[in-house]
């Protein structure tokens, strides 16, 4: 038996909206560690790993670890029937062939019940090694989204250059080229706007903007984003979900020939 009640149902709505364009289906694993998902996009270029810990829910009950094979498109369709301020309860029997979703409004006078048919998904699980990154950039998630949107007009690739001066995003294509440099700025009014860099050594890597733009759809979940980079390893883009979870994206770099 799995049962998890999420008082901020909007978190689940935003979470599914943020990943549904990257992955079409996946096994959500429920266990004593919480509700998690690891899934690669169909071209094996990007991977999403998300976790909502048990303390994201009240109550959270999972008697035995089990996968819930879910079509993200179908789950998204059902979650669109929930209002942003609804409480969402997820429930599944063991073994699970259906996921029940109950939406309760804050006034406690409307209850909607939906059932999602689950799928058998034969998914590959990748071991992600612990990595000490050469450069870590903490910045505003909406600024990151804006940069991806702007540079996507010029090219399908972006170079990210991190030095002690700051971080520079640059793109070049047929129409011309552009670059956006952010300096470290911890003295700003809003904590969300600060750009903070932890640097072991300078890095310069090239990535597909299409994927970065898809990751940036997670912006409504968190005002901050962290970019972790080392030469010749996948980029890690992390959004924290309050203190109760995260959405992490890994993106294989483009390799210069």
């Amino acid at each position: 038996m799995f049962e998890a009640r999420l008082s901020q149902g909007a978190v689940l709505k935003k979470l599914i909206e943020s990943i549904r364009d990257l992955v079409s289906e996946g096994n959500f694993d429920c266990s004593e560690n919480g509700l998690s998902l690891q899934a690669m996009d169909s071209s094996h270029v990007a991977l999403v790993a998300m976790l909502l810990r048990p303390d994201a829910f009240d109550p959270y009950r999972c008697d035995r670890s089990m996968p819930l094979g879910i079509s993200l498109k179908s789950l998204s369709s059902i979650l669109r029937c929930a209002s942003n301020d609804d409480v969402i309860t997820l429930r599944a029997e063991d073994p699970a062939d259906q996921l029940s979703l109950v939406f309760e409004n804050p006034q406690n006078d409307k209850v909607s019940e939906y059932v999602l048919n689950l799928m058998d998904i034969d998914s590959e699980h990748l071991g992600i090694p612990e990595t000490v990154y050469d450069a870590v950039v903490h910045m505003s998630s909406s600024e990151f989204q804006r940069i991806c949107r702007d540079l996507q007009q010029l090219s399908d690739s972006v170079s990210i250059d991190v030095s002690k001066e700051g971080v520079r995003f640059s793109a070049a294509g047929e129409v011309g080229s552009g670059s956006i440099a952010l300096r470290q700025n911890t003295n700003v009014d809003s904590g969300d706007e600060a750009t903070v860099i932890e640097l072991q050594q300078q890095v310069n890597l090239t990535f597909s903007i299409k994927y970065l733009s898809m990751f940036a759809k997670t912006t409504p979940l968190c005002g901050r984003v962290t970019l972790c980079m080392s030469s010749d390893v996948p980029l890690l883009v992390e959004y924290k979900i309050d203190e109760v979870g995260y959405v992490r994206y890994y993106l294989a770099p483009k390799i210069e020939e």
């Binding site: 270029v45 991977l47 699980h125 071991g127 996948p234 390799i255």
Partner: peptide, 14 residues
């Protein structure tokens, strides 16, 4: 030109 890498080259299947 740059070639898009794949995650399989970096992360091993478990």
């Amino acid at each position: 030109t740059a070639t898009q890498g794949r995650l399989d080259s970096f992360f091993k299947s478990t």
